[in-house]
Amino acid sequence: MDELLLLLGLLSAHLLGDFFLHPLSWINDRLNRHYRSSKLIWHALVHTLLSWLVLFIWEWTFGWGPTFWQPLWLALLLGCSHYVIDLAKSYCPVHTRYFLLDQCLHLTIILLIAMQLSQSWHWLKWCWDWLLTPTHLIVLIAYLLILRPSSVLIALLLRNWTLDVTEGSLPKAGHAIGLLERILILTFTLLEQFAGVGFLLAAKSVFRFGDLTHQKDRRLTEYVMLGTLLSVTISLLLGILTLRLVNGLV
């Protein structure tokens, strides 16, 4: 339990430093000046201070008493790593993939520091053992199938009714909506919350089919409805099959 408290404390410090104590002016200064940015140094110092507070309190409560130097060195290590990662990120385009990569690197370092300080490397074995079970692998495969393979299948099934539906809409918005729709339907199905599936379809019909009705375009309406029903059918069938397989293994 004390190892978990350490990890949660470091994660809380990271969230405070990266999102709540990180003004937009600091971000713009880092993006414009890169390694010459003084605000990037201040940002790293904020993370260092917050991490030191968490590490010092944890050492005082669960560790080897009121030691000062070990929490300080670990906090400096975390702050320096944050500086290097954010500096590298400042040279990358503003894109979701780089944001996610940035956060994954930060979280990896936090996890390594927490395990090193608490000497709880058995977490890695626990995570590996948790993943390598038939139940979790089946669920993982289901989510992988619901993404790209399902998109390819739906595109092939609709190839005889291809229409230009991009006019007046956001680029690739339909594809993104379909991915989120299938992920949510699969999740609701695995949780056996079929009311959520109905709510999702009702919400989509209000916002999307209503607009199509106003356009007086029957062919476009039928095309979108056909794609939606294919997406829902594939997601439900895959979800029910996954649920049956998982329940059969339990």
Rank of each mutant, 00 (worst) to 15 (best):
M1C: 06
E59C: 05
A44D: 07
T67S: 15
P134C: 09
M225T: 11
L200Y: 05
H214G: 12
K125Y: 15
A176E: 10
W64E: 13
Q215N: 06
L131T: 09
T108K: 09
F56A: 13
D102V: 04
S150T: 06
P66W: 08
C80H: 01
T162I: 14
P149G: 01
H106M: 10
L111V: 09
W161A: 08
L245W: 08
V206D: 05
A203G: 09
L16T: 15
M225R: 07
F19Q: 13
V54M: 10
Q116C: 04
G196I: 01
I185H: 00
L238T: 12
L245D: 01
R208C: 09
V165G: 00
E192L: 09
L74R: 11
G239F: 02
R159E: 08
V197A: 01
E59M: 12
I57N: 11
L117M: 13
Q193P: 05
H14L: 11
L21D: 09
A44N: 07
F20S: 15
H47S: 12
V94N: 13
F99G: 00
L5Q: 03
L10W: 03
S51I: 11
S205A: 13
W128S: 04
S118Y: 03
Q215D: 08
L16V: 15
L87H: 03
T133A: 03
H106P: 05
N32L: 10
Q215G: 05
V250W: 12
T67G: 13
G79V: 08
H175I: 15
L212C: 02
H34G: 05
L153M: 01
W60C: 09
L124H: 08
G168T: 12
I183E: 00
V250A: 12
T233R: 02
L16S: 14
L124M: 13
L76R: 08
F56G: 04
Q119M: 14
C80D: 01
F207S: 01
L40V: 08
R159F: 03
L8G: 04
T135E: 13
G17P: 06
L201R: 04
E222W: 01
S235G: 01
L190P: 05
I177T: 12
L137T: 12
I138A: 13
L117C: 06
H22E: 12
L153R: 00
W58V: 07
F194R: 03
A114N: 15
W126V: 15
S169G: 10
L50M: 04
I27Y: 12
R36Q: 02
G79P: 04
L131I: 11
L6K: 00
L245Q: 07
I234G: 00
M225D: 03
D102M: 05
A88Q: 12
L179P: 00
G227C: 03
Y35V: 12
R244K: 06
Q116N: 07
S51P: 04
L147T: 02
R182H: 02
A88F: 15
S51E: 11
V250G: 11
